[in-house]
Nucleic acid binder design. Structure first.
Lengths: 404, 404
DNA sequence: CGGCATTTGTTGACCCATTGAACTTATGCT
DNA sequence: AGCATAAGTTCAATGGGTCAACAAATGCCG
């Protein structure tokens, strides 16, 4: 399995110094441990990286001293020879925090270096109508308490990822229509909470972070489709979210699926969003427009009850989704679709038709089957994905966390 | 302007040695010279890269010895102080060769380190019906003669890029329907020509290489749409062609644009290809199916003559293209479309409608205008793009070309 | 039970690339 | 002519990886 990923120090355009060698090789050694199933020996690190045993040893020494690795029991050696000392990622040493601010809940997740969830909290409640300052203060308190709790358990949080349901540019939330927020300096406001003041904060779109939460060793490239009132996609290529030239990539909702379809709020005709978005689904299913309550819940209930109008609406949505996704998969050459957001709950009714239509549509379905499945995470998805991102970055630049 | 690009030595997963430092910094220094408008001094290289003047000097010394750089006249210094020695890419030293094998012509282009065309030859002639062995032998001879000619002018060709109109996987041409070729070992056959035997040969899809030929310092991310009987796209992101997980990315032709459209040979309904491909265009325009002669020529003639059926057909194609491209631009967050292949010739009739429809469709057209324009290159596009790719790779790993 | 092969991890001399500071070279300005 | 200024070079110092030898810890076999 290729270690892959990227961005291990030595950015292009930057000069390489001796220190860069160290940084690169530290990350390399650390990644071997992170990607391995069980404990790993120094000799195995040397073999896997191509470095000398001598170098591997010194690197491991530094990582141990920095609290990133931990020695475990001896490894069971197959043949004869001196037994190896096992090395694993240090649990409970360093970790990452993810904080999600969404329309009807706030969520926080803390993970350790292994990516395991240490701590999670979801705070339900409709945030619409509240000012951004108030909501962000609540979120900041939530994060601060999680931070304190994590600290109490001996976990140093290395950074925080904030997920928001809107367009992010240079760390600022440009607009979040569903919250009614425009041009909010999210990190700035969060940092007013004293215990967050010094933290390394990064902000990204909620769908991107949710997509990241679905990355596994086996599934590293896929399209994460988030179906809510709007329809968005997180494009994940080899474990990395593709953001496009301006960070606006993944606008699946405004892919045209029917030139004869209804007019969208964007002005065009037959966008996926107006055909298969939750509002359209609810209307086509003949359900009353739900106030406050998420559309997904009502739809799922109706589908479970076997309501024929709802079934027909879901069928039509699946066909439209297949058209849009077929185009996207052809363009990007990706083989897997993960249904997230409200689509995850509706997956049992969407997947069969969607899969069938995609198979009919995709040029390469004769060679490789397209895979469509529901997201595995609920509302904690984005905060988990954010927290994992922090950890991934940590693993790729460990030098920042070594005591000097 | 960011130097960007990528892949300057030190691949992820590989250990970093002292030599890697050298390699990285050599490429860095070389890129400064390559990206600069005029000659550059050692001191400027040092300043631009962040390296010491001492290091910059030794790097330049190596690049001079390797024939990659050349000293020019002194630079006009603005103030006082010792005048600087100018450095430029060595013209006529190392270069790259691009060879295109297409349905109705063969083409070869040789460029020097600066990307300037040194030599070009196009051999017209329908290749259909001929066996791959025969065609490839002709192509090999063409390349060999270009190689000899270049050699005579003192140019060392560092590598060769072969462009083919079909699906490439691991260097093999899996299938090229328009040529009727299936599973051809292109490099293997080409290497039977003695003077090509030792060359570094790489193979890629013709549309990808044509797309590369449109990359400039100002335009580094765009969608290159190649309209022939099929419709393909080369996705260029920050100067690099995006290939997808299996190398099949850019299949724009089978993006669905009309659920009520005609059935495509892929089995689906309303693919872009059956609505706006050349065959469809010719048919809708009421022109006789042209034998041998490229469809594009007949269409352009009819359009120039003001034939109303042709105008209507082009208008309809532009609308369909806008639907497909709107989706693609939304997904990828790219702002520019370059029309290539036969679309380039038809651009005057396509661009106005296409631009208008895209502006109506794109969410961000209020902030930034989408740009649609015709490709600047004719049949030499792919071979030029291929040759440039060779040079780009050369510039990113200069250590391979330094005498030891 | 003892010697031996085998593998792990460590030590120290060596190599090599970048740094930093001093130095030389070549020009413009006064 | 003298001085300021900037370009390019030299050389000892720094630091990181390699290499080979070695010590440590185990299994195997006689």
């Amino acid at each position: 399995m290729p270690a892959s990923r990227s961005a291990t120090s030595l950015g292009p355009g930057l000069p390489a110094r001796q220190q860069s060698l160290r940084d690169h090789n530290l990350a390399l050694a650390l990644r071997v441990v992170a990607d391995a199933a069980g404990p790993v020996s120094r000799a195995q690190i040397a073999a896997a990286t191509g470095l000398t045993r001598a170098t591997a040893s010194t690197l491991v020494e530094l990582l141990l001293a920095g609290g990133l690795l931990r020695e475990t029991a001896l490894l069971a050696t197959p043949g004869s020879g001196r037994p190896a000392v096992g090395l694993t990622l240090a649990p409970g040493g360093l970790g990452g925090l993810g904080l999600e601010i969404n329309v009807d809940y706030l969520a926080v997740t803390v993970v350790d270096l292994t990516g395991e969830v240490v701590l999670r909290e979801v705070l339900d409640g409709d945030q619409r109508g509240l000012s951004s300052a108030v909501v962000l203060q609540t979120a900041a308190r939530l994060a601060a308490s999680a931070l304190a709790e994590a600290h109490e358990r001996g976990l140093r949080v290395a950074g925080t990822a904030v997920s928001v349901p809107g367009l992010v540019r240079d760390g600022r939330l440009v607009r979040a229509p569903n919250l009614g927020w425009y041009d909010v300096d999210v990190p700035g406001v969060l940092r007013r909470e004293p215990s967050l003041a010094a933290l390394d904060l990064s902000v990204d779109n909620e769908a991107n972070d949710a997509a990241r939460s679905e990355v596994t060793a086996l599934l590293r490239s896929f399209l994460f489709v988030s179906g809510e009132i709007g329809v968005g996609a997180g494009i994940v290529l080899d474990g990395v979210v593709f953001r496009g030239t301006r960070g606006w990539a993944g606008e699946l909702g405004h892919v045209g699926v029917d030139p004869a379809g209804p007019v969208c709020r964007c002005g065009a005709r037959g966008c996926l969003e107006v055909v298969a978005g939750l509002e359209a689904l609810t209307r086509t299913a003949g359900l009353a427009p739900t106030q406050g309550l998420p559309h997904g819940v009502a739809l799922r209930a109706a589908a479970e009850a076997g309501d024929p109008a709802t079934s027909a609406a879901l069928e039509a949505a699946a066909v439209a989704l297949a058209t849009a996704l077929g185009g996207a998969l052809h363009l990007l050459d990706v083989g897997t679709v993960v249904l997230g957001g409200a689509y995850a709950q509706l997956a049992p009714w969407l997947v069969p038709t969607l899969t069938r239509c995609l198979q009919e549509r995709l040029l390469w379905s004769g060679w490789e089957r397209p895979v469509v499945r529901a997201a595995t995470r609920g509302p904690e998805a984005a905060s988990l994905g954010g927290a994992r991102t922090v950890v991934t970055r940590l693993l790729s630049e460990p030098e920042r966390w070594l005591v000097t």
